[in-house]
């Protein structure tokens, strides 16, 4: 990113190849909408190009990139909320997960537990879900997450523990529903 910041914008392609899947997974996990997530990934790389001069090489690139990603997601959510209000006031303003119920192929290939876990993760409150996505899927260090969220590292670790507890509760509830 330092090279991009100093004017070599072609190097952005290297960053794209390295991070586009991670960013896509981050957005899909939060929004459950593939098309929107692709738009957001595109938006993040465009914003990185635009604000490349503001990148400080002494800070974590991953934390900087996810800061931009969070802002893009917040902006998008505000925009969507504004569009949804007035169209359907009974709408819960969250798109239904495209694959909420486990498909037969997935059940056979991955086992029902993974499909159930995916559903449990989808039902977590967004702040807890984001934390687990960053820590588990994006392999971000707790220090980087703390820098991103603007809190202490110890706070992040406690929140991870609480998020896992909440995930477990939802998972068990879903398990009981399935066996009932």
């Amino acid at each position: 990113m330092a090279q991009v910041g100093s004017g070599d914008v072609a190097k952005m392609a290297v960053l794209f190849e390295r991070h586009n899947r991670g960013l896509f997974r981050y957005f899909v996990s939060l929004n459950r909408n593939r098309e929107l997530s692709e738009d957001l990934v595109q938006d993040v790389f465009f914003r990185m190009l635009r604000y490349r001069a503001s990148y400080d090489p002494n800070q974590s690139f991953t934390a900087w990139m996810y800061q931009i990603a969070r802002n893009a997601n917040v902006d998008q959510a505000q925009k969507r909320r504004a569009e949804v209000v007035g169209i359907d006031e009974f709408d819960d303003r969250r798109p239904e997960p495209a694959s909420d119920a486990p498909g037969p192929e997935e059940t056979v290939a991955k086992g029902q537990d993974v499909a159930l876990l995916k559903r449990a993760l989808d039902r977590l409150p967004s702040d807890k879900k984001e934390l687990l996505v960053l820590a588990r899927f994006q392999d971000m260090k707790y220090e980087e997450i703390a820098s991103l969220l603007g809190c202490e590292v110890g706070t992040v670790k406690v929140r991870v523990f609480r998020a896992m507890r909440a995930l477990e509760e939802i998972y068990h509830t879903l398990s009981k529903e399935r066996t009932a």
């Binding site: 899947r21 997530s37 993974v114």
Partner: peptide, 19 residues
């Protein structure tokens, strides 16, 4: 065990159109 299972959730891939 739940933490380990999270890694088994398959990652969704973006479409080639994104690239």
């Amino acid at each position: 065990a739940l933490w380990t299972s999270l890694s088994k959730i398959p990652a969704e891939e973006p479409s080639p159109a994104l690239r």
